[in-house]
Design a protein around this nucleic acid. Structure first.
Lengths: 212, 212
DNA sequence: TAGATTGTTAATCGATTAACAATC
DNA sequence: TAGATTGTTAATCGATTAACAATC
């Protein structure tokens, strides 16, 4: 009911606001102004007020923003309070790294199971997450109301796995493969982390920077 | 000599152009128009021509673009032909995953060594890359003309390691830690991959999407 | 109350799209 | 030549910044 279209740039900034507010909260700060927040993030106070007003505005004139309230509002906008259920597909190095190091909980996601085709891993637990056989994947999604799949398989069958996830009724894919996944006819949400694009941008800045 | 300021959005799109052109090349296509390229990438032909004209324009009227020529030009813009030298710091799961799966070569980077503090790994080779002791890091950067460091340590000492890298004279850091690194007084280039920001964006789309 | 700071409207700036002459 | 498609200029659109009345 609150969507008069939010621009990509605003959405891009929301997680950064969240991070900063979480920091402020840890530091014990109760109150923050758009000016202070802007200084921390390298943004103008105007932009910050504009961004927040997209969602209705969370501040108080003459005072600023209550750190906790603002953080909670942004967390809600990002869906962190919805308890989204996740699975992870592909327990290679990158998958294991996520299982061991990434704090899904603090993003509000619940990782329920991992899937692989390698029989030596199936049946094991990695950091409390059971590794199951890929053949059970579609049923697991359906039976457990899974919303999101982390796709961390090797390049090879990425689209094929994605198709199976979509067939199982997944609503979003967090894609760590270098493949450009296609949603096909579905309206699945695909959020990709493309390592090579990031590295090539770095290369651009290195080649064309101030001292280049 | 070719920098009348290129916008962030254009730089963001360059690696995607490269990827598509590489695909076209593999498919054996010699020629492509801005219209065809646009259709593949979901961009308007106008935008593509504008983007390329930032760098001088690489096409030919009535014909379009030669796939190989265009790809090579973009590769050069992204610095892929410069043979940038790299090290990787932190050979945990994410570091190992990069060593084993990421194709540094195809991005034009040369990975020379990895560093860790864990003595059981030091002296080993991972995929042909020697693992050295962190204490040798600064000297190694200086003695081998290293341009870029992949930072894949655990959260804890990330900024401290970054400071050491900067002290050693590194020119760019590819940051995989969740930390917001500070360049301090240096003009080091920092390109970060923040997993949680990506996942939270996914959460936003899931909570506010069409069917939400 | 006086001071501070919001939310919002208006102004500016930049990026995308459209149009078209140039030309292969 | 006629058709196609570029590079570029102009028009539009959207995002950021500035300004300010509202108000805590």
């Amino acid at each position: 009911m609150k969507k008069p279209y939010i621009s990509k740039n605003v959405i891009q900034r929301m997680p950064r606001y969240l991070r900063t507010l979480t920091e402020l909260q840890k530091e014990g700060t109760n109150r923050v102004s758009s000016g202070e927040l802007g200084a921390r993030l390298g943004l103008t106070p105007s932009q910050i007020r504009q961004d927040f007003s997209c969602f209705g505005g969370f501040g108080q004139q003459g005072y600023g923003y209550n750190v906790k309230t603002l953080r909670d509002e942004i967390a809600a906008i990002l869906g962190m309070d919805r308890g989204y259920q996740m699975i992870l597909v592909g327990t290679g190095k990158i998958g294991q790294s996520l299982l061991e190091n990434f704090d899904f909980e603090s993003c509000g996601f619940k990782l329920r199971a991992a899937f692989d085709i390698r029989h030596d891993l199936i049946g094991e637990d990695i950091c409390g997450v059971p590794v199951l056989d890929c053949s059970e994947m579609e049923d697991f999604i359906r039976n457990n109301g899974i919303h999101v799949a982390v796709l961390s398989t090797t390049r090879g069958g990425a689209q094929r796995v994605a198709d199976a996830l979509i067939a199982g009724g997944i609503r979003a894919i967090w894609n760590f493969t270098e493949c450009e996944l296609s949603p096909g006819e579905s309206d699945v949400i695909i959020e990709s982390i493309h390592f090579s694009e990031s590295l090539l941008r770095l290369g651009y800045h290195l080649s064309n920077g101030a001292s280049a």
